[in-house]
Design a binder for these strands. Sequence first.
DNA 1: CGAGGCGGTATTGTTGACAATAAATGCCTC
DNA 2: GAGGCATTTATTGTCAACAATACCGCCTCG
Lengths: 226, 226
Amino acid sequence: MAEAPIQPQTRADEAFDCLQTAIVTGELAPGEKIGEVELCSRFNLTRGPLREALGRLESRGLLVRRPHAGVKVVSVSAAELLELYRIREVMEGLAARQAAERMTDEEIAELQSTLDSHEKMIEQAQGQAYYQAEGDYDFHHRIATGSRNAKLAQMLLGDLYYMVRMYRYRLSTSAGRPHKALDEHRRIVEAIAQRDSELAEFLMKRHINAARQNIEQKIRNGLLAI
Amino acid sequence: MAEAPIQPQTRADEAFDCLQTAIVTGELAPGEKIGEVELCSRFNLTRGPLREALGRLESRGLLVRRPHAGVKVVSVSAAELLELYRIREVMEGLAARQAAERMTDEEIAELQSTLDSHEKMIEQAQGQAYYQAEGDYDFHHRIATGSRNAKLAQMLLGDLYYMVRMYRYRLSTSAGRPHKALDEHRRIVEAIAQRDSELAEFLMKRHINAARQNIEQKIRNGLLAI
DNA sequence: CGAGGCGGTATTGTTGACAATAAATGCCTC
DNA sequence: GAGGCATTTATTGTCAACAATACCGCCTCG
């Protein structure tokens, strides 16, 4: 894959990575107000690079900043989370369509083999939810880059996924869903392998739509406090 | 509307706005390598806020930055510009669909009246291209915000439009297209007014698809050097 | 007793100087 | 004369001090 550089090349990059993962993992809770100096001591940084990272995070919508009043982690309401899935639906649908047109045969083969390993991960039930989440992320990540649409991949991987992942960590997938999701992944890859771009788009949209409905149902049942 | 604050609230915001408009208008040409100190003197800023703005611009994909090697304005190839339109197609389709479901009657009425004024602007042929571009931007802007999908609006208005507008300035619309575009706008609004979300999505997608093909054709004819 | 204004304090925004890195130039060697 | 290496230089990255602003508690006044 080779996505992350060997090491953050500059202190600002380092700060950016630290903050981003801290937000995604929930180490910095949504809605939490955070002071700059506190963050500096926490991540061994100085305020210059930190502020630069803060700006980038704000631009990506993970932070909100009020002038002279500090920054706080964005808190996404349940409704907004569902809206995110609406966006994912159309964007990843496009990604799947373009991936079907443009992925190399090697990439498709790799994609299929990753699905195999995801299946194994799910079989050994321990840590099922976590591995499923990671596997799911891996799958969608590959489709996004496989679209050969740089901006699309950037928006999906840089903007949307991080916001969704904020909630993945506390959103344990419901029983039975992992298998269903994997099956849906399989069908999408199948369509891509057959270069059936229309079908790939359709299946991807339906896949994400199903995930959204899954969350929607949980919210209705009060199983999910956001 | 009331979008832009009365004045940039902080120096970094000011820097961000300056740089962004400078890039969009072409004052800073794509591919141009720019030094920080030069920018500082040009916009009467100091390097701190400037760097913060630079980070935000980079995060939005208008700049590319190589550590210790300076920043340069992103140069979008013809192929990438067309890819941008593919993204717009699906995202604005979604925006139109949600706008049809969620815009208030007042907003729809306003939208219709803005179309009237756009028509007048086109009638008086002078500066046709410019007004058309602005009117087009205005229209799509309203649809995006009308979707009541904050993240969608943010991604469209914050990420995509600025990149597209970089090329709008040198992309004179072809003869006859303004009228056609206005007509397409009219139909979309009509669908929204009738709360026909499916039709609104369809028409919007087709509208942007037509714009893309228009550009594609120009590129093929060598009328467009990118 | 409540509301509004006022000052202290802590936090953010900004600045200029310092250090580290990469590009560029000139020199030396082959 | 050409190529590679070391030095120089300019640019970026980083830091710590300074200034400006908003929040909080207190006091006064209605």
